[in-house]
Computed example of a mutant assay.
Amino acid sequence: MSSIITYQAARTVAPTIEQHFSNLLGAARQTTIENLATEPDAATIEKIIDTAFWASLQREEGHVIKISIAYLPPAHTKHPVLFLKRLPLTAPVLTKLAPGVERPGIHIGVWQEDGELYIWGTTRSIPSLCFVVDVSEPGLMVIKHRRRDGFGKYANVAVLKGDQIKIIDEQNTALDDCPGFLTSLLGLTTPSTTVAANILVQLAVSMRAHKRGGTLLVVPTETTNWQNSIVKPMVYSIQPTLSGLARLIQHQEEERTKGTWQSALKKEVDALAGLTAIDGATIITDNYKLLAFGAKIGRAIGSSPVDEMTVTEPIVGNEEKKLHPAHNGGTRHLSAAQFVHDQRDSLGLVASQDGKFTIFSWSPCKQMVHAHVIDTLLL
């Protein structure tokens, strides 16, 4: 490719991303998965990221550019929108296209011929493990791919913000202690756990999206011990406890045969996540029954205040820290850490108004609360 790469972070990160997709697709070819994507080489990765970066800094009629670029030929997608004439892959062209393709699920299709990349049209359907560059704000590029089974949020590979580069670390040693849906965010779940884990992923994404901040507590179905850590009375306690999300999951096979399950699931996830915007914590069981919202967390009688926890972020080069919960966030973070400290079979999901997202779980190995900072995975 003859064009000059002027965004140096693109050149820095391209070989790592090339190797990641080579390993990912190489392993997938040893399975029965069909409809796999084409591997992008480093030069292609550089060019797409570089062009996306410069487009992200532009505005179209005063609006920030939001685009998703997928690397694939038109033949590898279903029902593409094909342009009569190919368009060059340049920042001005992406800027002009942006208003028409900013809705979620629409990708600008890019392929190459004779060493030159071009835009062939748009699509809503891409193959498994397809290389995607997502731009949602100026200077922010998220490199991701469609999951092998096609279900749930795309798996992030790297995040570039200006000259900052964060590579997702799938081999993070902290994974030994992490809750199942964090491994789902990293693309490491087995088929048997994918649905359950991905529902919590979608809840996390939806909580972050409303930008009001919120807390979601996930408690075991078989016990009511969690009530010892909640201030009484609970004004918004729910009876009966079977939520729309729980009903949908119980009847997922029936809904899937209708072809309506994915859209119905999103509606129920957004409805439940919306409750977390109300002051206080939303509480659900581990089978998604809604128990309460707007609940106030208190320290259980006889328990000690949580004075230290371990904090990690699943990116390459991150070092584990031990902090007081008050040094990792505000009141929501402190109360969720205390709840998990007292109710060790529970999870606490906390979204901050600024986009920070943390999962609190109990670490049996470290015998303390473990705060997983995962906003990089939710972009």
Rank of each mutant, 00 (worst) to 15 (best):
G109Q: 03
V101P: 00
L97H: 02
L140Y: 10
D149E: 10
A91V: 00
A158F: 05
G152D: 01
L94F: 05
P104D: 05
C130W: 00
G150Q: 02
F151P: 03
G105A: 03
T123V: 14
H107W: 07
N156C: 09
A155V: 11
A91E: 01
I106W: 13
E102L: 13
N156A: 14
G139D: 01
G100A: 11
P127N: 04
A158C: 13
P138D: 14
P127I: 04
H76V: 07
V132H: 02
D134C: 10
F131E: 01
V110R: 01
V93W: 02
Q164D: 14
F83W: 08
R147P: 04
L97T: 02
A91L: 02
F83R: 06
L84I: 07
K96Q: 06
L89S: 04
V157R: 01
V133A: 10
P138I: 06
M141C: 13
I143K: 03
E116A: 12
L117T: 07
I108V: 12
D163C: 12
E113K: 10
N156W: 03
K78Y: 13
G109Y: 06
P88Y: 05
D114A: 11
K153Y: 13
G139E: 01
W120R: 02
K96E: 11
H79C: 12
T77N: 04
L97V: 05
K85W: 12
W111Y: 09
K161G: 10
G139L: 01
V93C: 06
D114N: 15
K78R: 10
P80F: 02
L94I: 07
D134N: 15
V81F: 11
G105K: 06
E137I: 07
S128H: 13
W111N: 15
F151K: 07
D134A: 13
V159I: 08
H76E: 08
P92W: 01
F151H: 10
R103Q: 15
L97N: 01
R148E: 12
P104H: 05
K96Y: 12
A98V: 05
H79K: 14
Y118L: 14
H145C: 05
K144Q: 15
H76M: 15
R86W: 08
L140F: 09
F83Y: 13
G121L: 06
G115E: 12
P92Y: 01
K161W: 14
Y154A: 14
G121F: 09
E113Q: 15
M141T: 01
L129D: 06
K144I: 05
P138F: 06
R86G: 11
L117G: 09
S136P: 14
V93L: 08
D163F: 11
I119Q: 00
A98R: 02
P138H: 08
G121M: 09
R103C: 12
A91T: 01
H145S: 07
H107Y: 12
A98L: 07
E113H: 15
P127M: 04
H107A: 10
F131D: 00
L87R: 10
E116P: 06
P127L: 04
P138Y: 10
